[in-house]
């Protein structure tokens, strides 16, 4: 298949995944900022949302203060933010349009309708309820696109490249949330388990749609080290780093089998997966959660570059 087509497939998936993640962050932040201070509500939730989205630099270049209005506008609607939900959907749609032939009709309709619908939302006049509906809608669009890909694509290289985009983006997103919130996950805190942090941890889980999963897996109330375990090492959890890398390795292997040769991308992906498999939470905490996650994000970016180098140019 054309290298440009593979590149488009990969990025369409990444952008759609990113849009969903931004919607989740905004939703979780909305909830947290509505909490009374005594329950963990803080005043800098919106700062934290910008950091989690990985665009603090661009945001503060354009805005003085991070508050509900400015952050929602910037992360959801701003045409000047290349990673806003609107920009993600627009780029995804124009990439999709440039390779219509590689998408199934269901995938195209999902992305095209999202784009058509998007233009009907008028950010300036939206109430909180409407914004909440908008954020739900974004997640539904992503689910529909992802589901269409899963249900309708041939299982060939086109499918594998589009999956790679999903999992690389997802791994990056999960790692970023952990990185911004890591200080809350560190154990040996005085009031671990107190009501203050409880809602913060719940918010983290919510932002990666893992709150229900947490209860099923651990059958305990929310504990910080279990939250970290779930999001980093638990391969049953679809957004965990471990699970993302299971999938990245599998899809890269499928490509290598089909093309008859392995390359640097396959080797790098396996190395990251092995590191995750051999890690224990105790060890990660001892050597530093922040350092661990920082290292992971860098590895993940390097893998993205290796995949591009090997297949997409």
């Amino acid at each position: 298949m054309l290298a440009r087509t593979a590149d488009n497939l990969y990025w369409v998936s990444r952008y759609v995944e990113r849009a969903e993640y931004l919607a989740r962050i905004l939703e979780a932040t909305q909830r947290l900022s509505a909490l009374p201070i005594a329950y963990g509500g803080t005043t800098n939730e919106w700062d934290s949302a910008v950091a989690t989205a990985g665009c603090a630099g661009a945001f503060f270049a354009a805005h003085k203060e991070a508050n509900e209005e400015s952050v929602t506008e910037f992360l959801a609607f701003s045409p000047d933010n290349p990673s806003s939900i609107r920009s993600c959907f627009e780029v995804a749609r124009s990439n999709a349009r440039a390779m219509r032939t590689a998408l199934t009709i269901e995938m195209w309709e999902a992305i095209n309708e999202t784009w058509l619908e998007l233009r009907r939302f008028q950010p300036s006049s939206m109430s909180r309820e409407e914004i909440a509906r908008f954020l739900r809608w974004v997640q539904e669009c992503s689910l529909r696109f992802d589901g269409s890909a899963y249900r309708t694509m041939l299982r060939n290289d086109a499918y594998w490249f589009s999956r790679l985009g999903v999992y690389l983006e997802r791994a990056d997103n999960t790692a970023r949330i952990l990185d911004v919130k890591y200080h809350m996950l560190l154990p040996a805190h005085e009031h671990v388990g107190g009501p203050l942090d409880y809602f913060q941890w719940a918010a983290i889980l919510r932002s990666v749609s893992a709150l229900t999963a947490y209860h099923w897996v651990y059958r305990e109330s929310v504990k910080p080290w279990l939250v970290a375990d779930l999001l980093i090492l638990n391969d049953q959890m679809p957004r965990s780093l471990a699970s993302c890398y299971e999938n990245i390795v599998r899809n890269l292997d499928s490509i290598a089998r089909a093309y008859g040769r392995q390359g640097p991308a396959q080797r790098q992906a396996r190395a990251v997966r092995t590191r995750l498999q051999n890690s224990r939470m105790d060890g990660i905490f001892q050597s530093g959660l922040h350092e661990f996650i920082g290292g992971f994000i860098a590895d993940n970016n390097r893998l993205g570059a290796a995949i591009a180098e090997q297949y997409l140019v």
Binding site: L2, R4, T101
Partner: peptide, 27 residues
């Protein structure tokens, strides 16, 4: 292109080497 089952290429997807036209693919 979709109905024909052939690649839809742009100029930048093609190159000419030794008077032969090639397209850049993932392989």
């Amino acid at each position: 292109a979709d109905k024909l089952g052939v690649e839809l290429v742009e100029g930048r997807d093609l190159l000419v080497k030794g008077e032969i036209v090639y397209m850049r693919t993932t392989e």
